[in-house]
Structure formats: C-alpha cells, structure tokens
Nucleic acid binder design. Structure first.
Lengths: 338, 338
DNA sequence: TTGTATGCGTTATCAA
DNA sequence: TTGATAACGCATACAA
C-alpha cells in the first residue's frame, strides 16, 4: 500500500508538501507538478480513515429514512446521492422502519463514526439529535418537519392534501373519505388538514369518521379503505395521503368491485380515488385516479445542497424551505407548478 | 468528548486495559467491572474512525447495487442490512445505475475507505475487484454471477425462467415471447435460456425473433412488449424475466387491450403474461398473471452471512450458493402460488 | 513557501 | 494479567 511518505520520497519533498498539494494549499508550481507526477506513478490514493481521524470529520453523509422500500424515499435517496457524490461525499443509507429506537441507534452511529452530516426523514416526532448538535454536526430534516433548530426542507403538505381532495370534488364526488398515516407523522397530519380544508371550500362536511389513520404502507391503505367501503354509508371517494396507502386503496376498491359483481349487485358508479404521490410501479392504467404527483428527488437534492452549504461553513440561522411539491410537467427535476 | 484515557483514569487502569475490556480480551473481573462502570458513568463510546485506522479495517460494509429504485434490490438490501447490523456492521448503499464506470468508482472508494467488505450485484460482466482482492478484502457476489474467485449467491435462473414459461404453457398459451434484460446480465441470459427449455419441453418452437433483449426497467418492458404485440403475427403470451419488465409488459398489454377496444376490434382472448419476480406495488389484481415469486431478501441475508464468515477469518475456497429462488410458503413475502 | 515534528484516538507489542 | 508506548496514515502548528 502506498502512503503519503512514499509519494513524498519519490517527489523529493516532505509529506507536508504532498498533503498541501492534495488539499489545494499554496505550493510552488514545480513542486506541485512533481507531487502530481509521483501520485500518478504510484497510483496513490489517500487513506480516508486516517484523513477522517485527523480532520475529526469524515466524508460520508448519513441518510436516515423511515422505509427504504418505499419508492418515494428511494427517490429522495437518489436526489441526495446525486449531489453528495458530485461533491465527493459518500452516502450511507440507514433504514429506521419508522422505529424511534432504530433511528436513535443510527444517529448515535453517525455521531461516533464522525460522519460529516445527516439528512433525516424523521421516524420520531422528536428525533435524538442532541448528540450530533452538541458536536456541531450538520443536520438537515427532509420531508418531515422536526422541532429542532436545523435546516428543514418539506413540501407544503396542507396544500397538497387540499389540491388532491379538490380534484375529487371537481370530479363530482361528494362524500370523500381520507386515509392518512400515523398521527406522529407531520406529513400525514398536514395532508389530512388539507383534505378538511378542501371539503370546507366546497361546502362539504369533513366528518371526523371519514378520516382514518392507518400506517403509511400498502397494508394500511388496503385495510382502512376496505373498512370504509364496507360501511352502510360508504364514501363515494377516498383520498390516500401517500403513495403506498394509495396502492392499498386502489386494491381495496378493485376487490370491492369484484365482490359486488360476484354478489350480483348492480355495477354502480365506481369509487373515486385520489392520491398524494406517484405510482411508479402501477400495473394498471391510472387515468381515473386523481394524482397529485410529487418530486421526492428534488426534495433530496435540495436537502443535500443545504447540507453541503453547512459543511462548507455556512453559519446562519436554521432555514426552512417549503417546496411546492408538484412534479414538473416536463423535466426530471422540480419546477414550480403554478 | 470522552476518550479512552478518560475512562482509564476514572477506572484507575491503563488505556490498554480499557481497550481489552471493550474488545473482550481476558481481564481480571474486578477491573472489568470498574471499567464498565466508568464507561457507563462517562457515557463513553469508542471513536470508530480511530479504531478503523488502527485495525486497518472499518465496520462498514459496502452494498453495490445496479438500481436502488428497483424493489427487488431494496429487498436484497434489507436482507443484507438485517444480518450486517445484527453483527454490528453498518451498510453503505452504492447505486451504480448499471454503469460499469460508476461501479468502479464505488469499488475504489470501498477500498480506500478501508471498508470491511463488499456485497455486489455486478453491473459489469467483470467488475473491478482487483484492488479489493489484492488487499484481501472480503467480497460476495449476489444475484449476478461474476468471473472472479469470490463467494457467490444466486438463484437458479435457468430453472426460474423455465418454471415461469412452463406456467404459461400449462395455461394453454402456444406462442410465447420472452422479454429479458441486457446480454451482459447473467440473470437475463439464464432466464431466457430457461424460457427456451420450457418451450422445448412442450414441443413448441422458441423462435429467436420471439426473444427480445430490453433494459431491465419498466420502460424497456413496455417498449419491447408493445412492439411484440403490434407485429402481424403477435405472440399470445409474454414472459418477462424480471419484475420491472413485468410491470412494463402488463401496462403494454392493458394499453393494447384498450386500443383494440377503441378500434372496434373484437375483444379477443387477452394476452398472457408471465413474470419472474414479484409485484409489491401492483395496483390491479394479479390473479391471471403467471408469477414466479422470488425471495431477494433471502439472497441478501445469505450473502451477508457469507461475508460475515469471511470477516470472521474463514479461509476456504470460494463458494457458490444457488438458492431455489422460490419465496417461502409461510413467510411474510409472497407465498408459492401453484 | 517548505520541512519537522506532533497529535488525532485507538489497538497491539513488548516487558514487567 | 497489566501497563507503558509505539504505531496506524494523515494534516497542521510552528520554525525555518
């Protein structure tokens, strides 16, 4: 293994000079050339562990997510990865399963592994960031708001819920239920608030028993929607406040449809479905689903950029960025959709 | 920040003894107790960077994947993560986009970051493992076979393709096309071979123009299937050799169905679809899809266990594990559908 | 600008 | 078994 001393010897300089060249400090041009030549010839690559120990900070960023199997969060991950990698950072993906204990463990690892920074979509209403903040490590909250004084980038979730519910209203549905996520999840609560507002806008009644809190996964959406549709006074439409719940809702509606057909009941007008989010792996056409597409990847890139600014030394008060949330009509990145 | 010297002072021992206690070497019981007490009181956690530098190996494992947005690979990741984490290792997720250059970069990072080991689903037919192997780092290939002398865990892809195509034959389809992945991807080639065998078994003709190589994503499956269905002598069924291609195929079939209906053509018998893989986010019922479910998570756990054995010092010839591929009947994932 | 020498926090070697 | 101390590879304070 080639070390910095090998390069120094070969270039006829001290290790300090090699280090300076490698880190862009001012060095006489001819020595720079000599060092670079030696580096190339020896195929030298600095040991990042030693560098981290000395600098007291590594070049890896932790990305703490509630569910890496949710395409929404993998898209966030891609966004973060794209810009982090560009800047020379590696990204460690940490999966919390929405479990505050697992989350706390990962945050502790990030702290003691001297990671450069953390981007977190919090599982807990109040994640264990104290240790990291005490060490003045950069932290950015993404997607879900946290109470701590850190940079945050989220969607305008109230607006998203309102828009999605509004689409259902426009399509003529009158009795619109809402299936959302856990009460501890800010996105779930805010989008449900949006649903309420949209119904108010339309002079409809956002009755409390039409609001169901499930988990934010497929099974949660399926169970909640099935239950709603089985009621004597079933809703004529369901708003799912995230993508996976939306998948579950669609399956529940499809099953219900088949059940009714089997039991000889008239094929009444089908149940409307609205979804805040995308269906990247839909196996059916989604023309009649009221979709409010998001750009989670943009969320990730924004969060990563904010983190990099902090790592670059930016020292201002915590910032809150609220992205509109709409996926751009054409491009791959976020565009403001007015 | 508390360091090992602080603990040593508090416990009235040397740093060497603290280190020994922390690493389970033999130490007099009373001293062990004293050290543990000091660790607790001071809330001491070893700095993993320093530890890595000294040990010349970190406790993070790189997981190199072609596409973290594919649920198949996120499931592999969960499997790896589960067992690695249990053993005290962190997992870094590296996304190569099936690009050999990106893959090579990540492998170089893994090498110079002194990562403990690498689990890789190769993007390249011959990934750049030389550096890692020269340093005797543990490497396990998962899902896709590689030419190097490393542990490998894969499915029996020929058998999987054969089984899926066989299901379509059983259902009475006679002209069965196959949409598979790139020629450089072992899984794509092997499953196509299985398709060929199944057709032979049934006395059918696996005509070469019924085999299409697409990319292994939704758009690839959609385009290839659309093209097949638009031919004058269209196939009556399509075998998709992975999950995403399967999604694309289903969408193409649905669109074709609608087009025919719109053009007033008779609603002939619908096109059969077979898929090697799962549809975790299907938005429609999949009763009439010939699915051969997999357990990618099991692939991941096996690979991680093999890696851990190597990290534990196991020094035997490279092993090849071929998993049946069928998801377990009882587990949480899709049950075997006979 | 350059070199020397020290320290980052831990583990491993060697004597005791 | 235990303690003193020398590495691990790099970056920087200080001196030149």
């Amino acid at each position: 293994m080639t070390r910095i001393v090998d390069v120094a010897r070969r270039a006829g300089v001290s290790t300090a000079t090699v280090s300076r060249v490698l880190n862009g400090k001012s060095v006489r041009p001819e020595l720079v050339a000599a060092v670079r030549a030696a580096v190339d010839e020896l195929d030298y690559v600095p040991d990042r562990t030693a560098r981290s120990l000395r600098r007291r900070s590594s070049d890896v960023v932790a990305l703490v997510l509630p569910d890496v199997e949710n395409p929404f969060f993998t898209a966030v991950a891609r966004g973060v990865e794209d810009v982090a990698q560009e800047a020379g950072f590696s990204v460690v993906l940490c999966n919390t399963d929405d479990d505050p204990a697992k989350e706390a463990r990962y945050l502790a690892v990030a702290e003691h592994e001297n990671m450069a920074g953390v981007v977190i979509a919090a599982a807990s209403a109040s994640p264990a960031l104290a240790g990291l903040l005490a060490r003045r490590r950069a932290v950015v909250a993404v997607d879900r708001a946290v109470p701590d004084a850190v940079d945050q980038v989220t969607f305008d979730n109230v607006a998203l819920g309102r828009r999605a519910a509004g689409l259902l209203v426009e399509r003529g549905f009158r009795r619109i239920a809402c299936v959302t996520g856990p009460r501890a999840t800010t996105t779930a609560v805010d989008r449900a608030t949006g649903w309420r507002l949209a119904l108010d806008d339309a002079g409809l009644v956002p009755s409390d028993d039409l609001l169901v809190h499930a988990n934010f996964r497929v099974d949660g959406g399926y169970a909640a929607t099935s239950e709603l549709l089985a009621r004597p006074t079933a809703p004529d439409a369901v708003l799912a406040t995230n993508n996976l719940v939306g998948v579950g809702a669609l399956r529940a509606v499809a099953d219900r449809h088949l059940d009714l057909a089997a039991s000889g009941a008239a094929g009444g007008t089908s149940v409307g479905v609205g979804i805040v989010g995308d269906l990247p792996f839909a196996t059916s056409r989604t023309d009649d689903v009221a979709l409010v597409p998001l750009s989670p990847r943009g969320l990730g890139t924004t969060a990563a950029r904010m983190l990099l600014e902090r790592l670059d030394g930016l020292d201002v008060a915590p910032r809150r960025v609220v992205q509109d949330g709409a996926a751009p009509p054409g491009g791959t990145s976020a565009g403001l959709h007015l």
